[in-house]
Design a protein around this nucleic acid. Structure first.
Lengths: 191, 191
DNA sequence: ACAAGAAGTGAACCAGGATTCAAACCTTGA
DNA sequence: TCAAGGTTTGAATCCTGGTTCACTTCTTGT
């Protein structure tokens, strides 16, 4: 039955996500994933041709979840300044709640094939931000600029500012407001 | 003789740097390094206990070189705005001249032990920038802010904006001026 | 109920590259 | 010149973890 088959596949992905959130990519041997999914190592290969394929999908799903959350939070706000603030708060807040997962998605060493998925992830964030920036430029909230470049730079800034604290396990309480101020200034929001 | 011994060690480091610049960390098997240094594989272990130790040192040296170049360029300028511009131009210009090396230093997957060295590298950049920011705050060139946070965010922004082009092999001609504008605005330089 | 085929099993296999080590080779000092 | 101590060699070894595959177990259709 196909239901069973799909269920197995889902169990594998869920197990991989679970281990990523607890121990990062480092803990994700195929054997560990299979065990957590309640099946034999070899069975994983009934559903995914290689480990890299499996984790490309896992990264895609996890990333999409993050990007969606950020996009959704931003959509609730009225001004561009508030949208950007919402992006940062959501991004950083979620990262802070699942630090191991956030580290895995952002910076942990992984297979090159999986790494490629990370570029997509970052570009997706950049795209969301770029949309808001373009809008802000169009209606005069911020000065003319290349929304792509600004967005890419902001994604880098957010990531870098979070990786340190995530690795260290501590974040200054003013990190998030500080980043919001930084972003607003970088965009040229008139204050 | 000790001179010979030191010379061997230097040859190893130089060979590793050379291969990194040409083929990235991926090409840096111990055997390849040894061959380029003109010695047997095993001899490398006369000078470094493990491969990770060797590359920690290699990363440290290469990073120091980069950070020094940036710091030196910045020191030549008079205003904080110009110093920051010099940082960005030097960083991006050098990365663009040795893209494979820059990619290896910035983003290529490496041993966790070597990865740790990367954090030091980024923090060193941040420290240089933070110094200029603090100075700018002190003499009123820019508004009050946390220089550490601003600097970290800028390092992330620069890295992110360069990794894409480095991987793709193309950079828009307005990337560097765009980044300078971004940085100046983010700092709050009065224009 | 039974045959055909799919799904699951997990121990064995394999690849790639770091690391070791016993033998061969210098260099130095008497 | 010779012996002792240190250095160099590079093929053999080891390790890790992804991948395979011959076999068993289940599901489905007649």
């Amino acid at each position: 039955m196909k239901a069973r088959l799909n269920a197995s596949r889902d169990r594998i992905v869920a197990a991989a996500l679970g281990i990523m959130a607890e121990q990062g990519y480092a803990g994700c041997s195929v054997a560990a994933v299979a065990e957590r999914a309640g099946m034999a190592t070899g069975s994983v290969y009934r559903h995914f041709p290689t480990k890299a394929d499996l984790f490309a999908e896992v990264f895609r799903i996890a990333s999409q979840r993050e990007v969606d959350a950020v996009a959704r939070a931003a959509a609730l706000e009225a001004t561009m300044a508030d949208r950007i603030a919402a992006v940062i708060e959501t991004f950083a807040g979620r990262a802070w709640k699942s630090p191991r997962l956030a580290y895995a998605l952002l910076a942990e060493p992984v297979d090159p094939a999986v790494d490629a998925e990370r570029l997509v992830f970052r570009r997706a964030y950049a795209k969301v931000i770029a949309g808001h920036v373009a809008e802000g430029v169009a209606n005069g909230e911020v000065p003319a600029q290349n929304p792509e470049l600004t967005a890419t730079a902001l994604v880098g800034a957010l990531g870098e500012a979070m990786v340190g604290p995530l690795a260290a396990g501590v974040a200054g309480p003013d990190t998030i407001p500080g980043l919001i101020t930084f972003a607003h200034r970088a965009l040229g929001v008139s204050t």
